[in-house]
Amino acid sequence: MVKKRTWASIYLFCVFVVLYLPIFYLMFYSFNKAGTMTHFTGFTLDWYKEVFSDKRLIVIVIDTVIVALLSSVISTALGVVGALAVYSTKRRSAKNALLSLNNILMVSPDVIIGASFLILFTLIGIKLGFVSVLLAHIAFSVPIVVLMVLPKLQEMSPTFIDAARDLGARRRDVLLKVVLPFITPGIFAGFFMALTYSLDDFAVTFFVTGNGFSTLSVEIYSRARQGISMSVNALSTLIFLITLAIVLVYYFFSNGIGKAKSYSGGRRV
């Protein structure tokens, strides 16, 4: 048993090294004064100053954040409705069909999804830009929210709803005062997942962006194609730190909700 745990720990350590070593390598050389990724000659913040002094890049950052927040809020609302629809479906075959349709976007390659959206927007006359990127991000974020919320609904005992109805609660009251408070952790999990997916997405966004509109992932790709630049490293480092901050906020927030639910009336249940 001890040997199995030791090997499991070694395996996890190797996985984390493979995943994070390139990121830390990139972050380290974002402070390189020489401007190369071969020899570190001295510490400097010039590359970060270059990022913050780039007005076009600042606009792109703002656009990226706006798209991420809007798509996350809208997809969270739609995803909650979708999860409730799947949960309330009584026929098993219909429920499985809805889940299969929901999971199509999760398992389909991003290139196919992006190309499909590009064809769709071209056919219906939507100009490529802010609107097309926002719609695409909402579309691929909704299934993520559904998968985050649905397990919380399945954990909820039907007796909660029955008890609320026996006490005279209307459907609206049951939804607002019983169901939504219970699935709140799943809702926030879906929101933060949608937010990180939107900030990180490149493949789908690359197909549907245009008219001078861009996001950080597409901009980093465009700059990286022009050659190695420490400003790209600095920008990538900032994105990684922002994503890490979002994960930590969600972690502490979810722990706070868990601790709050473990108490009732000032005492532990």
Rank of each mutant, 00 (worst) to 15 (best):
K3L: 05
W7Y: 11
A8G: 07
S9I: 03
Y11R: 11
Y11P: 07
L12R: 11
V17T: 08
L19E: 05
I23S: 09
F24V: 14
F24G: 10
F28I: 15
S30N: 04
S30T: 05
S30L: 13
T36S: 12
F43H: 05
L45T: 06
D46T: 10
D46E: 13
Y48M: 05
E50D: 10
E50G: 12
E50H: 05
V51A: 08
V51G: 04
S53R: 12
R56A: 13
I58V: 13
I60C: 10
V61A: 06
D63L: 13
T64F: 05
I66M: 11
L70S: 11
S71H: 00
S72H: 03
I74Y: 02
T76G: 05
A77S: 15
G79W: 00
R91D: 15
A94P: 10
A94T: 14
L98W: 09
S100K: 11
N103Y: 06
V107L: 11
V107P: 08
S108Y: 03
D110C: 03
D110Q: 07
G114K: 00
G114M: 02
G114S: 06
A115I: 13
L118A: 05
L118E: 02
L120T: 15
T122S: 11
L123A: 06
L123H: 06
G125Y: 08
K127C: 06
L128D: 03
G129V: 09
V131C: 06
L135W: 03
A136T: 07
H137A: 00
F140S: 06
V142Y: 02
V142F: 03
L150S: 02
P151K: 02
P151H: 01
K152P: 03
L153Y: 04
E155L: 02
E155D: 14
E155M: 06
S157Q: 06
T159A: 14
F160L: 15
F160E: 14
F160P: 10
I161C: 00
D162E: 14
D162F: 01
R172A: 08
L175G: 05
L175Q: 04
F182R: 02
L195T: 01
Y197N: 09
S198P: 03
L199K: 02
D200T: 03
D200P: 06
D201I: 03
V204T: 08
T205K: 00
F206C: 04
F207P: 00
F207A: 04
V208L: 07
L216W: 01
V218K: 00
A224M: 15
Q226T: 10
Q226P: 02
I228Q: 13
S231R: 15
V232Y: 07
V232P: 00
N233W: 10
L235V: 08
L241C: 12
L244F: 15
L244V: 13
I246L: 08
V247Y: 14
L248V: 15
V249S: 09
Y251W: 11
F252T: 11
F253D: 08
S254L: 09
N255D: 10
G258E: 14
S264E: 14
G265Y: 04
